[in-house]
Design a protein around this nucleic acid. Sequence first.
DNA 1: GCCGTTTTCGGCCCGACTGTTTTCAGTCG
Length: 582
Amino acid sequence: MATSHSLVALFRELAQLAALDEGSSMSFRARAYENAVEAIASYPGDLAALSERQLTAIDGIGPATAKKIREFFQKGSIARLEELRRKYPPEFVALGRIPGIGPKTLLRLRDELGVTNVETLAAALAGQKLRALPGLGVKTEEKILQSIERMRAAGFEPPAEQARVPIAKAMPIVRELAAALAVLPGGPGVQYCGSLRRLDETTGPADIVAATSDPLAVHAAFAGHQAVARVLEQDGTVTSVETGTGLRVDLRTVDPSRFGAACLWRTGSPAHVARLAARAAGRGWTLDEEGLKDADGETVAADPEDAIYEALGLAPIAPPLREDRGEIEQAERRALPAPVRLEQVRGDLHVHTTLSGDGRSTLEEILDSAAARGYEYLAITDHAEDLSMNGATREQLAAQRAQIEALRGRHPGMALLHGSELNIDREGDVDYDPAFRRTLDWCVASVHSHFDLPRAEQTRRILRAMEDPTVHVIGHLSGRRIGTRMGIDLDVDAVLERAAATGTAIEINAALARLDASSEVLYRARGMDVTFVISTDTHHTREFARMEWGVLHATRGWVDPERVANLWPRARFLDWLHARRG
DNA sequence: GCCGTTTTCGGCCCGACTGTTTTCAGTCG
């Protein structure tokens, strides 16, 4: 209920820095922090209300973590984390994102070669200093050089401190802040805006707009929120803060009569708003954050947002579409693709249980949770055996099948598909043999390794997986983790064409850290005969809620709802599935 | 850092791959 996403994020960072500090992500301390993350995220009640002693009673939280949690609720920050941040500055930690550099190597580079950032690393590489270290060699140097090259070519600048924050880090905290303001007395209208509202992959300083007649109370509540570590600036209408996670958030309060205009202005994108302003100018009007006004300064429209679009002769444009990618022309012709809506989703087709090594919820918990969302169908897709640590053997899958059969009566309204998330290996082959795969109702195939092969090889392996008749959908197409790991390099057009030709669906992975296929790929597929599936890749029942992001991401990619298979009624979906299986 | 305990330390998941090795360490998922 009152999960503090800021607290979760801080412990996640603590786990990462501890892993670096200890030289291994397998270190017991780092893993203990990760367990604490899980415990905090899963706790259903209000952690802030618990004493140190009560906190210790929670599984995965011991005395040290309990102390840190109390510290967070009192100060908005954790001293131990601040200490680790000083010891390992962001530009140094970022080097760990370069494929081939793990914690051990990273620490040695610093201790033995004085590497502290990408510049000093580049200098060490140029001087061929790495090969002189025992355990490292020419190949390692080459590999690191290539990784840096590739990242730069892709516009991915991990070696430097990221000016922009990945959406998965920012969104939960900003939403929590917005939600805390929305429940204040007087019920102010509250909307987070900017990149987050457009579901962009990263965000700069985040924007929240609140419509209220009591701005002082709203600003005070904002500045005093537990996620806030520091107040940067404050005047009557704007408060800027930094959260414990280092994210800057600006709150603006406006008169309720101008709420829509303020949201429109702050949501952007700048290019989109500039086009609207030009359009207003063409009519002799002006558009700014106060609203649309005529030549006499009289308000034409200022709230809600849709009224401004209508006054400009445009159909309302959903926030994820506001990128000046042609949406204004389409809105003028009333030909925009309809936004995908959460209520339209009828099933989830990529879901893990505890049978996956990284799954956190039991099969029963998963079924109950999906049924509670009103789903008409659900596919259980635990990892296949190629993912050695996390995967299931065919015997385990067979046993799970029997378990599912036994549970069919539990939720009669929900069709249960038994499947697996297969691993696409380097050659494009997937787990098990075709005969066994045919005993599965639904197969997701996705990439989990070999992220740094050249484009031609990556494309070949995906095409090969799509050619396999037992593969229904390609999961998280690029394998990226936004802000952390670049996806595989693909010939996107070739992949989309083959998807259309083979009838293999493309997953729209709803996890904020993935949002994969990217909205650029989705946009590129418009007009093509490609089927999509919006999936949550759930590993814990709470992650079913990600579907909300999946539909926004699909909207951002201009995906026609008609092409999304898990919006189809059960009968149509099952017909499609059976026809595909031949 | 947490847990369990036959109470106060010892155990806590791992397998493939790669590059550097001459027997293994580090990375990755």
